[in-house]
Write a protein that binds this DNA or RNA. Structure first.
Lengths: 342, 342
DNA sequence: GGGGTGAATGTTAGCGCTAACAATGTTGCT
DNA sequence: AGCAACATTGTTAGCGCTAACATTCACCCC
């Protein structure tokens, strides 16, 4: 008896040791109700004695379920995406699913569909795609869709279940905050044009300005990175016109802060600056940055929740209007914003 | 003919359409040499016509290979770990492996072994464990080790293949840089005591000081986060003793920079500050931070390389001295360090 | 006491694939 | 021509599991 050498134990080994059929072992493993408590205990201890572990491939082959969710992520060096991924991972594990992750260098339609193809090789049951660009979301909707897909940060994706942070609301919140402080208008350093998050934040900013009857300056587009914020910030500092600046993310805000500081523009005395994301560093910028926080973990959780609903839904029908879940943004007030100079 | 409805096509369907046996289809799929070009083309087009995709579970069942590598990561909200994960992911995909990731909230021995257990359910072929704490590495060495494990950032793990950045060298580099600028000694804000990276950086710092015959102040331990750097920085500013400060990561350096600035200590005129990590933000700190860069992607690549060697090594013997790969650190000079005040 | 009921267990048949072997056809060489 | 060697294809068995059905047994009720 004891532990067989040479190969790892299979169900039949456990069955033999426990003096039952392999099917009874299977029943114990799957929590089937009609097994005598005494039998169950015998099987259980045989499992432990042998260190038996069920072969997931064999199981998947017959159940036609792998329990694997494919995730297409990108650019996990940024705070937001990394946090979202982490939220997805925890939620998935809590529900007993495994995650297979592909991270993309470039966020294009082709790269995404290639990644999904790669994941399909592994028989994932469904996908979560972090889709921050319009082109990606549209490409996603075109896909043959053999398996459920949930888009995260997919803006107002028309035909796809989506979870996202309320970017428009966040942009509105930020702008409104500055207008409430008495600024005549608010300039905006935006993200790249094709990013949905950038679009949403612009929309919220514009709405707040229009609602208040304030002039709407042209938004200035950066590339999310500190350097672009620095460049645009330097330009604004030179023009000496803006008194309030809404920057579409904290990294660019950092660059802008630095450019302003270097040219002798005081923040917040001369210019108020507000960011977006609330990265851990922003509390310690010079000066500490007022910003808009997003609950990325919640986005991940809801994304997984939505996908699992789709996977386990017994009715095979796709609902007319795909589910849509919007997580609110939150204003975090620190030092970089102050009443307009008189 | 055409696409069968109701179920996805299997190898037999392709075989029928192409007029061959299913085994020939298998041979084409596996790139077996002895298949006539014409047959291969016929099979290929049948595959495309049906949209056939090989069932990975069935394949894994018979080959006993899942092609899945389990990754135990933690705290992917920090720059370094997130970057490392990304490097691992790209390298794995390039070699045709899939990644199943578990991220941990707490880095304890138990959490790691639980995570590995979870991954074992999915029949991963091997593990990459990001093991930044001594306890974790030791726990890893105790594991039954049914499958290969590679530790990343595991310091000088005794009995385990390890890939890590040369933390000692990096600490030495940073300290040496400050000593070369004429500072009498260098104070150190270290990471938490049980972190291997913190230990390594301390060791390098200490070696550089001792080598130069400089006094060795007590290292002050933070928790990697900006706030702790701020607290310790404020304390140092009050003491007015240090002229050179080596901070174990950029986030704490940011906090220290802020504390110094608030108390009127000028950087680098009064105090030089050097960080570690070279996060994207550090170039735009006030002032731009001199720091030590780590090539995380390279770490990920080497980690996967090592593991795959282990997986595909035909000899089953574990080498006497496990492989060990050390990636050098690199000094990035910016504005926050300057010659000692006279 | 007999038959119906349901709980507990066993037996059998695949899931879709690859490995091993068997059976062809094809070539080159004596 | 005839045979060996090899290239090409087909046939069969089985990986380890679960679903479906079959069997056994205890129990209950009229």
């Amino acid at each position: 008896m004891s532990v067989p050498v040479g190969r790892s134990p299979v169900m039949a080994d456990v069955a033999r040791l426990a003096g039952v059929s392999h099917q009874t072992v299977s029943r114990v493993l799957n929590g089937h109700p009609n097994v005598r408590a005494e039998t169950q205990a015998r099987v259980q201890s045989a499992i432990e004695e042998l260190g038996y572990r069920r072969n997931s491939s064999a199981r998947a082959l017959v159940t036609r379920r792998t329990g694997v969710i494919g995730v297409v992520a990108f650019d996990t060096t940024h705070y937001g995406p990394a946090q979202t991924l982490s939220g997805i991972e925890h939620a998935a594990r809590a529900d007993g699913y495994f995650l297979s992750v592909v991270t993309l260098q470039t966020v294009t339609r082709e790269a995404v569909s290639e990644a999904m193809d790669y994941l399909a090789q592994q028989s994932v049951e469904g996908y979560i795609v972090i889709a921050p660009k319009r082109a990606v979301v549209e490409g996603l909707a075109d896909q043959p869709a053999e398996r459920p897909v949930v888009a995260v940060e997919g803006g107002e994706a028309p035909d796809l279940p989506v979870v996202c942070v309320d970017q428009v609301g966040g942009g509105y919140l930020a702008t409104r905050h500055l207008l409430d402080l008495g600024h005549r208008t608010v300039h905006h350093i935006a993200g790249p044009g094709d990013w949905l998050e950038a679009e949403g934040r612009i929309a919220g900013w514009r709405r707040a300005l229009e609602e208040a009857g304030a002039p709407v300056p042209d938004p200035l587009h950066g590339d999310w990175r500190p350097r672009s914020g620095y460049r645009i910030g330097a330009q604004l500092a030179e023009e000496r016109e803006a008194t309030a600046l809404f920057v579409a993310n904290d990294q660019m805000a950092l660059g802008a802060l630095r450019a302003l500081g270097e040219t002798g523009v005081r923040v917040p005395d001369d210019v108020s600056v507000i960011g977006f994301d609330d990265i851990p560093e922003s509390e310690f910028f010079t000066p500490p940055l007022t910003t808009v926080a997003q609950d990325f973990s919640e986005v991940g959780r809801r994304g997984i929740g939505l996908l699992i609903d789709l996977l386990e839904d017994p009715t095979d029908t796709v609902p007319m209007t795909p589910a849509r879940s919007v997580v609110p943004a939150r204003l975090v007030t620190r030092v970089s914003t102050a009443p307009a100079p008189v």
